[in-house]
Design a protein around this nucleic acid. Structure first.
Lengths: 161, 161
DNA sequence: CGAATTTTGGTACGAAAGTATGAATCGCCT
DNA sequence: AGGCGATTCATACTTTCGTACCAAAATTCG
């Protein structure tokens, strides 16, 4: 508990610690250089130059640390075409509202394929008379006058695939 | 010509020039400080400290200049739903291949609406006989047997809106 | 079980669709 | 000028569609 608290503190202030340590090292280095070259007067320029190089390097390093999070985020909107948004889904609500019977709906699906009444009859094993009845009743419910309009409306209402 | 050449050189190396100038200014500053405080021996630490601060600042500035192009560009793809992806465009190639005449194409467009031959005739100011002719010829080109199949195929080939 | 609905099928008839054939007119191109 | 495709229209015929009216099973549901 207390350890994790201290650990957190250390983690958050590690940069400051690093700067402090680096500064201390440099100060010791400076003092050492001072003692070593203080004897010869001619070396004061070299001493100054070394200090300049050292602290320039330090400055660069410090700046690097400070600017590491200086990233600029550029968001580019890219248009992505989606194959078919909401095409697969059929309008269940509308389909229920129309109150079509199962057979009428089956006939409607075959109607869309362009089959004649006789062909539909063959596929459903029904007589042409029966198909005619279903078709006619369906037209009333869809409020259309012929099969082409029925298919057109079914497509528009998305009650068929 | 020569001027623009020199201008280009200057432009590309302006950072180096700036660094040089800054360095010269600092050297003069150092010499001035050296003359001013060299009299008193106790000021050598202050002198060193000032040099350290100056060059640290210089280092930070240099680093800033070097990392100015450190921007990270993040491209985010954003999905944009387009009203109707490829619906507006009709298949011109297929339409041309079918070799429909102008009248046949007009009839086809009205056929899709579920109009009867008589209604199409009224809208195009033509007799029912003419409409029948166009419709029948069109069926051959589309390779279909009735109007419902014609509309279905036209929709599938996207040769009509 | 009984009523309502759905499904199936039939007949009849008119309307519309579709096919086949022929023909006149028009615009365009060589 | 002649050829050609497109357009227009007509007639005749067959097929399909669509409606109306009816009715017997089958199914669903309270």
């Amino acid at each position: 508990m207390i350890f994790s608290f201290l650990k957190d503190i250390v983690h958050k202030t590690r940069h400051i610690f690093l700067y402090g340590v680096a500064m201390a090292v440099l100060v010791f280095l400076l003092k050492w250089l001072q003692w070593k070259y203080l004897i010869t007067d001619h070396s004061s320029d070299i001493y100054t130059g070394l200090i300049a190089i050292l602290f320039t390097t330090l400055g660069v390093w410090v700046a690097r640390q400070l600017t590491e999070t200086k990233n600029r985020t550029i968001i580019v909107e890219k248009e992505v075409y989606l194959s078919e948004p909401a095409d697969a889904g059929i309008n269940e609500a509308e389909l229920k509202r129309l109150n079509l019977t199962t057979r009428e709906y089956e006939v409607l699906q075959l109607l869309k394929q362009g089959y004649s009444n006789a062909e539909i009859g063959e596929r459903l094993f029904l007589s042409v008379s029966t198909i005619k009845t279903h078709v006619s009743n369906m037209f009333v419910k869809l409020d259309v006058k012929n099969r082409t309009q029925a298919v057109e409306k079914a497509n528009r209402l998305k009650i068929i695939r």
